[in-house]
């Protein structure tokens, strides 16, 4: 396969605004390793202007269709937009079917919109491991708004909240009743809740349930109150309101000095994730760990050693450097 990228030449073409160069750099970021680090080091000083909005929610809630509609609105405001659309990688074949572009067809004719589909490639948080990096790249490419659409998530795929300034949770009337809405997880990360498919007869009731359970939360005075909005991506209703509330949330963050805090949070989680990733890879490759596991697992199996005792033993033996 292709290898031996000339990264400085690519970066030069990237800064000249060439779409093909940006696309190739994203591929390099996806593949990770030394080349990816070189790219990031090259662009890092030019990132942090773009505003990042995450869209998350269960499969089939209409995230892609909504994304398409809000992109059109933000384009009218003159924003340059980068879209990262993530779909799941099959844990069986390693392949993926990335279908988000189907809902965004006419966007590929707009030079100020760049859409990239990413496969989750084994990440379990509802996003791809290189989401941060690709976001940075689109930021450095001059996009001022980055929209990130997660894999269709359940209640525990919450990593988007570490990546985005504004998190929009997209639900549909079938998403569950008020008790579902009180559960931990998805309902705790939304700045804005969208009840999509509002043409559905149960939509208003479902939106009211969400609003009710949000009211049970103890939100300190002056903090952002999560909002609930009814939309229909198909009938194109409620979209203007959604765009307005995204802007409102942004103003709230800006006026309260929270953009900088968010930036710190995003960077902190990045360093931590990259470090954990390294440690995991190193441990996975370590002959010593494999050897000890091979020799001592029998003891665990035979009840001579508890699993935790073996872990302690491994911890003492293995140096992570």
């Amino acid at each position: 396969m292709r290898s031996g990228y000339d990264i400085s030449a690519l970066l030069e073409r990237f800064y000249a605004g060439q779409v093909a160069a940006a696309a190739r750099l994203i591929t390099i970021l996806e593949n990770g390793g030394d080349d990816a680090e070189k790219v990031l080091d090259g662009i890092f000083s030019r990132t942090d202007d773009a505003y990042r909005v995450g869209l998350t929610g269960p499969p089939g809630a209409g995230k892609s269709s909504l994304l398409y509609q809000i992109t059109k609105r933000f384009r009218k405001k003159g924003r340059k937009i980068g879209i990262i659309a993530i779909d799941p990688t099959s844990p069986f074949s390693g392949g993926a079917l990335l279908g988000d572009r189907i809902r965004m067809q006419s966007l590929s004719e707009d030079p100020d919109v760049f859409v990239r589909s990413l496969a989750s490639r084994g990440s379990l948080g509802g996003i791809s491991n290189c989401t941060d990096e690709v976001t940075d790249l689109l930021d450095a490419f001059g996009k001022d708004l980055i929209l990130i659409e997660t894999v269709g998530v359940g209640q525990s795929e919450l990593e988007i909240s570490e990546k985005a300034h504004t998190v929009v949770v997209v639900l549909v009337p079938e998403s569950g009743d008020g008790i579902q809405a009180m559960k931990a997880g998805l309902m705790e990360i939304g700045d804005i809740f969208v009840m999509n498919k509002s043409d559905h007869k149960d939509a208003e009731m479902a939106a009211a349930e969400i609003a009710n359970s949000l009211r049970l939360k103890d939100i300190p005075e002056g903090n952002w109150n999560p909002r609930v909005i009814l939309t229909s991506a198909r009938e194109n209703t409620g979209i203007d309101e959604l765009v307005d509330v995204i802007e409102e949330h942004r103003s709230y963050l800006e006026e309260n000095g929270l953009i900088a805090a968010k930036r710190r949070e995003i960077l902190f989680s990045r360093v931590r994730n990259a470090l954990m990733d390294r440690i995991e890879k190193r441990l996975g490759r370590s002959e010593m760990v494999r050897e000890i596991m091979k020799n001592r697992m029998d003891d665990v199996y035979n009840g001579i050693l508890t699993p935790y005792a073996l872990v302690h033993e491994l911890e003492k033996t293995v140096k992570i450097k």
Binding site: T89, S90, S93, G94, G95, A96, L97, L98, G99, R101, I102, Q105, S108, E109, S117, A119
Partner: peptide
């Protein structure tokens, strides 16, 4: 996809552009 490739499916009625 089943053969391990990443497939972007763009759907119907696409222009060459």
């Amino acid at each position: 996809k089943d053969a391990g490739m990443e497939v972007i499916y763009t759907g119907l009625h696409q222009t060459p552009e």
